[in-house]
């Protein structure tokens, strides 16, 4: 089973949920940190990193000896990643989406594709957890290929937990899609609620079942609970704010090390998710 942990708003506790859920389970677990812009799960899991792979995308390389400067490639590139200037073709890999159209349409056959590095993935382990995360190189705008590279390692025989990036746009959807269930982590403030409503709309659009976890449930107001009740969205867990939890988090200490009873709560959470997913 694949469970994604997501939220519209950042800083609501996605990483707290995904790492503590992974650490609480006793069966074989895969934890994938797909927040490749700002990956954090490793700070709490502290895995032993065993492998590192670069993530590349294919981008065009133009052979100047063959290129006739016809300009077809620059014309068809939807991303303006190629320019023909002063008798030479220039390629801007940062803008390329690797669609392959330029190579296909080049009448002279002057274009081949070469690998361009955009980030890396690392594989590691901690006890029963197989840990995988990716990192987007700073200054690169497109996170999708790195997220895909992380998800390529999914082993469906294990319980797979995906820590998704915040938001409702393409990187979040890339991380969540293909999951059996999505946990939406929110906090009971107008910000949290506003962004939860966006997340719910996103999940309806991609048709994945979901439930809510309210973090810092004793701060803020009651409107998030009311919204979930009205919309018939299951609230699967509530975590209270206290300074002990916040201080532990700040040091990279998992919640379950401070309050061991949460191990049981996270185990129950998985059971609840299984029930929802398996109910037709």
């Amino acid at each position: 089973m694949i469970i994604a942990v997501a939220s519209g708003k950042g800083g609501t506790g996605k990483t707290t949920i995904s790492t503590n859920l992974a650490l609480s389970l006793t069966d074989q677990v895969q934890l994938l940190d797909c927040d490749v812009e700002e990956p954090n799960a490793h700070l709490f899991i502290k895995p032993e990193i065993l492998e590192k792979h670069t993530v590349t995308i294919p981008v065009p390389q133009i052979d100047r000896a063959i290129c006739t400067l016809c300009g077809k490639c620059a014309k068809i590139c939807a991303y303006n990643a190629i320019a023909i200037i002063a008798k030479q073709a220039m390629v801007f890999p940062e803008l390329c989406h690797s669609c392959g159209a330029c190579k296909y349409f080049c009448p002279a056959g002057a274009i081949k594709e070469v690998n361009h590095e955009v980030g890396f993935t690392e594989l590691g382990s901690k006890n029963n957890i197989q840990f995988i995360h990716g990192q987007l190189n700073v200054g690169k705008a497109i996170a999708i290929p790195v997220i895909k590279a992380v998800k390529n390692h999914i082993d469906k025989t294990k319980t797979v937990i995906i820590d998704a990036p915040p938001g409702t746009t393409c990187p979040t959807i890339e991380a969540i899609k293909g999951s059996n269930f999505c946990l939406l982590v929110t906090e009971p403030t107008p910000f949290g609620l506003n962004d939860l409503i966006l997340s719910v709309a996103t999940l309806k659009k991609i048709n994945i079942p979901y439930g809510v976890i309210i973090n810092r449930s004793n701060l803020g107001d009651n409107s998030t609970e009311q919204y979930c009740n009205q919309e018939d969205i299951p609230i699967l867990m509530r975590i209270k704010f206290d300074k002990k939890i916040a201080a532990a988090y700040s040091n990279g200490t998992p919640l379950i090390n401070i309050y061991p009873e949460y191990r049981q709560h996270f185990g129950d959470l998985l059971k609840k998710i299984k029930t929802i997913v398996e109910t037709p």
């Binding site: 990483t15 700002e38 954090n40 700070l43 700073v138 988090y249 700040s250 040091n251 990279g252």
Partner: peptide
């Protein structure tokens, strides 16, 4: 930023970007 391992980790990445 906030005084957490993740806050500082992420702040450093965005600082790198700003410097870029």
């Amino acid at each position: 930023t906030e005084p957490t391992v993740s806050g500082l980790h992420d702040a450093k990445r965005v600082i790198e970007l700003a410097k870029h």
